[in-house]
Amino acid sequence: MPEPWLPGAEIHDLGDHAPTDHQYPPKAIAHITWDRNATAAAPQDWCSYEDLVGYFTGAGAGDAPHLVWDPFTGRTTQLFPADSRSKSLLSPAQSPTRTNRAGQVVIQIEAVFFPYCRHQGTVYPRLVDTPCAGWDRIHAWISSWGVPDVWPMGRPTDFSEHRDEHVWETRPGWYAHAHVPYNDHVDPGSWPDFGAGPGPGAPSDPPPHRQPVPPASTPARYQVTINGLAYGYGAHGYQVTVVGRALVAAGHGSHYQSGPGPDWTDADTENYAGYQVSLGYSGQAADGVPGEASLNRLLGYLPGPRTVSLAHAIAAARTDPGAAQGHRTYGAEVAIVEQALADEGLLEQRWVDGSFGSLTVTAYAGWQRRCGYTAGAADGIPGRDSLQRLGAAQGFAVTD
């Protein structure tokens, strides 16, 4: 399954997810923020990406798209997962479709742009006159969701509208906001090319200053944040080691010359890319930087900050051994405990899987004996003292 979150995006999940209407074909909707009115004679300063992200995560959450995209730097914020509707389209009661949901996906992108904006001293009449930085990554991700490289109502080249309910309901592809029935906006006015040759969706003139696609041999060097922890080149922490060890166990560790360790290097990226390819990802969706879906498939859980709840640890130790093989009551927290036990030499690394099964109970009992407990006090069920000692030894915090 494609990644629900764009690799490399800054995630500000607004919650309030809702399914789309799968009887309609997959779509992507192109918008510009058009937050100021400017002209060739009177350009205005560009409104910053940070301001627009702040708006859509605050007062403007009721109109939020999936992606907020800065075409000057390539920074992108994602507010909803791809398989949820977002909220940037009008969807009045008289519309035959719920426009924000009318597709297997309806991915909406807001470029932070208005015509004749002035950015760092240069005026940009059209979106395609900007560097369009990051577009290739966005396009590859949206393509992975089955949206074809066509504009059923024509590639936008100006601010005229063309709305056709039948085409909207029956044709997959890319739509301008100016194409969506029962809406009144006429943006985006232009949109970058898909990189195709002549044919549907090809540009009448190529957008200048396009950033080239990095060579496939160059490892990706950006970071993502998943469940509060960083992944990608330069990331540091226990979660990096966890991923590296899981890649080795899955047969994708050939690029390591040493390690894996707590610092994410090009070797981690190249190994993770091999793992993504094994899942069926391709292109920039297999660039070696984790997404939430692939990370969850690799580990069976999503690592979190190094904090373990005593109550959760006890519940897992009492529940997981009697449940189905691999059952994870509190996988992320249990994995922290298991890794600590492995680093203490009490549990084989291959059993660090987030499931507090019988082998983990036995290993924890060994830790309790090391702490001086005997008989029934060394039963493998965590207690406050033993868990706090393990946390102090291996660098995690313990809460109630």
Rank of each mutant, 00 (worst) to 15 (best):
P206M: 07
D63R: 01
E165C: 00
D353A: 08
G283M: 01
E333K: 15
P382V: 03
E348F: 15
Y281R: 12
V180K: 03
A28V: 09
R210M: 15
M153T: 07
G154D: 08
A64M: 02
P321K: 06
G237Q: 11
L229H: 04
S88F: 05
I336D: 02
M1I: 01
V167A: 13
R155F: 09
D83P: 00
T97M: 11
G251V: 07
Q257K: 13
T225F: 09
A293Y: 13
A9Y: 11
P212C: 10
F396N: 06
A9G: 01
E165K: 00
Q23A: 14
L387N: 04
L359W: 15
P4Q: 15
V308D: 04
A377D: 13
F356Q: 04
A335Q: 09
G376K: 14
W5M: 02
A323M: 06
L298V: 04
R101M: 06
T225N: 14
P26Y: 05
Y330V: 02
W191A: 07
G237D: 12
S217T: 14
F356I: 01
Y301V: 00
A311W: 05
D353Y: 11
A230S: 15
S254H: 13
I138G: 05
Y24E: 15
S258D: 12
G228K: 12
Y55T: 00
I11V: 15
R384N: 05
G300S: 03
T374P: 00
P215M: 05
A335H: 07
A316I: 04
A235G: 06
P172Y: 12
